[in-house]
Design a protein around this nucleic acid. Sequence first.
DNA 1: GTTGTAATGTAGCGAACGCTACACTTTTTG
DNA 2: CAAAAAGTGTAGCGTTCGCTACATTACAAC
Lengths: 180, 180
Amino acid sequence: MNKTDEKRQIIIEMAADHLLERGMQEATLRKLAKSVGVSDRMLMHYFSNKEELLQAILTVITARLVHLLESAKTEQMPFEKFLFYLASMMKAPQVRPFLRLSLELAAMSSQGESFYTAIAKQICDDFFRWMARTLKVDCEEQRIPLAALAFATTEGLMVLDALGSASIVEKALAGIELKN
Amino acid sequence: MNKTDEKRQIIIEMAADHLLERGMQEATLRKLAKSVGVSDRMLMHYFSNKEELLQAILTVITARLVHLLESAKTEQMPFEKFLFYLASMMKAPQVRPFLRLSLELAAMSSQGESFYTAIAKQICDDFFRWMARTLKVDCEEQRIPLAALAFATTEGLMVLDALGSASIVEKALAGIELKN
DNA sequence: GTTGTAATGTAGCGAACGCTACACTTTTTG
DNA sequence: CAAAAAGTGTAGCGTTCGCTACATTACAAC
């Protein structure tokens, strides 16, 4: 790897840290540059425009999420237990930033910002695949539908959590127990 | 009602239409002013700052949502049926704008924009109350937990829908059938 | 009918945005 | 060592943002 690529990589990694920590409102050239410790002028030297830079950063972020999920080596769990596990994971400081960020991307995407749709979808697909793998089912036909349901429920809990409606999250978890 | 208040009300209503239709990226003084057909200068004449204006607009929007839900006079439904009903409602052009907007507000709120947290929470609370009322349960103790679960699931479906993952939405609905 | 108040237009400030021009230094390469 | 390429700083353009100053017009009250 040549020096330019190395520098580029460092920029991407540090900017990814920053975005995960502070959210998309920090995704301006000047703010990202500051977080990396270079001038915004330099960002345009290493990347041809903001979109290309953001693409690279968000790609790294989804790669990190995949790695995080892979390395957890979580054993398979039945539906109900899995949902509780996901709910607790949601609060974990390693995972939470990813969920917050994907929520922001989903919102941006919902307003037709097609650039963000693709990357938000990527994150969700990765997360969904992991969920489908980690779910324990009685029969394989159930795997995808139940994983999708678990995914939707988790996303929903995340939205509630984002609103600070912790009490509704608790109630929903109680509801999950009732349904089993 | 004096003339100033009347004008103020017209501005709020028209701006509410605009925001519901186009999303929060249109929530700038100049864009809102254009949508109402006045100058941004006038907005500052009727409202002391952007935050006050936005507060008024979003309050009207939640009032509209409440009215919409009330006037539907939906009969009580058991959990599974209710979720399917909600999923179909999500696609309805009268309801969809509210959900998209609340998703945006949730995302903003998740990044600590406390101004948006309150209003997003308000919308969600109203929606949740209606859900709790419309759910048919075997025993009253189940009402709140199951409503919370239905709420979380619906929010999740909405996020997936926002990402254009219609196929996962369908699969999740299949999953709901499996769980019953 | 004068006088005060409300309503509106024009113009622009200072800040942040994405991005670029220009100049300079450092490093790499033949 | 010279020429080319890569790296970096400074400054600023053009736009949009929230918001304001200043002016004028329309209307109300006495």
